[in-house]
Design a protein around this nucleic acid. Sequence first.
DNA 1: CGAAAGTAGCTTAGTGGTAAGCTAGTTTCC
DNA 2: GGAAACTAGCTTACCACTAAGCTACTTTCG
Lengths: 173, 173
Amino acid sequence: MSERPEQHRDPVDAIIDQWAAVRPDLDTAAMEVFGRVHRLSRAMGDRMERAYARFGISRGEFDVLATLRRSGEPYTLSPRQLSATLMLTTGGMTGRLDKLERAGLLRRSPDPHDRRGLQVTLTDRGLELIDEAVGAGGAVQTEALSAALDAEKAGHLAALLRELLAATEGQGG
Amino acid sequence: MSERPEQHRDPVDAIIDQWAAVRPDLDTAAMEVFGRVHRLSRAMGDRMERAYARFGISRGEFDVLATLRRSGEPYTLSPRQLSATLMLTTGGMTGRLDKLERAGLLRRSPDPHDRRGLQVTLTDRGLELIDEAVGAGGAVQTEALSAALDAEKAGHLAALLRELLAATEGQGG
DNA sequence: CGAAAGTAGCTTAGTGGTAAGCTAGTTTCC
DNA sequence: GGAAACTAGCTTACCACTAAGCTACTTTCG
């Protein structure tokens, strides 16, 4: 059992203690990091899903609109650029664009320079909606973070995560 | 643009710079944390998927076997306990158990104390396979972590993540 | 120029999950 | 003891994704 006082234990500590009891040979240091990363990602993903649902969009649809929004005016990218940025297959992107186009949040138009291609552009309504949704989603994240860590710790955490992410995404992962 | 030298920038820095250019009013501090958590979770998830594929199981199936394994002898839990632990609907659990039972890695038997219920138990082959897979998966995680951070930084990161996770999973999320 | 190779987006089949609803069995409580 | 409420696991319908393959178009290069 970990020596850590009860109020500072989390579900991952419990799992690691279980492993230590049945497989004391295992090195669990990496699990302390990646187990928590996994659970945090899932918990916050669920929260963001709920936050965006108020705007009638899913998290994946939010990501499409947000990518267009932060590309700047004229808020236009190709399906290819979108699926590459969002690490999605072209089939998956077709489905998301279908839904968002039906909802009137973006439109597809022919690429004038390449007749194979399309341009995807935010509509006025799409721009308005994503600007509100980005604000609401950001507020949820900010509140979750500041409830747990002060600004200094949060900055430290971000810096450590940057190092780990750069190394992990860098080397074929 | 961020002042950080190029070799210390990661993909999340680029996204945050884009937001700063088009929406300078946004507070992006929380995105520095949760954006990286999300991407790390996805990147490592893909790697683990590949690691477990060598044993003929998916990540979700690994989680079922691992939960049984770390529960200790006699490696028996109910479908209900498993789906609660893994935050999965009972329908999803039925599917995973079907596949694992067909593969001969676990067996379902009636619960002697409750005729509605079942007991799910690791077979000898399931025990052997999960012990190897846990080792292989742990090695992948350990390698990814130690390639990026020394032990002290890794411990610090784990501690910060513990604080954040405890707060996040604690308050309805 | 014209053939070969490459690229864009869509379609189809298959996968793994959720939500809702079902039956069988158990618990509660008068 | 028996009705009502609850619980366990499965089934069904649906959804979003991937992988593979298609057509249309573009680029490369002899």
